[in-house]
Amino acid sequence: MVKYLADLSKLEFSEQKLEETAGQMTDIINLMDTVKEIDVTYDAYKDNHDVFLPELRCDSVVPSMATDKIVSNAVSSDNCFVVPKVVE
């Protein structure tokens, strides 16, 4: 299960670390299981009824950050992000 979660999470662990993490995750999930003891139902309307649509931003074009700033923390070339070759 932890190996599957690691794949989902885009993480890799050494065999030893995976075993250690699996043990910790078992303890953590046992703690999380306490929520199963109580019978409550989620009411999605209650959480979302106060979203006031007129207060959302207008769908209009505004200046955005300059490209050189956006790539300033990345490996870049000609103001583009560089990734490994993905097509032959």
Partner: peptide, 18 residues
Amino acid sequence: RSEGFGDEVKRRILLGNY
């Protein structure tokens, strides 16, 4: 991601995805 994140962050990502 595996090199950059520490153990606690990894545990919480795993729990979140679980």
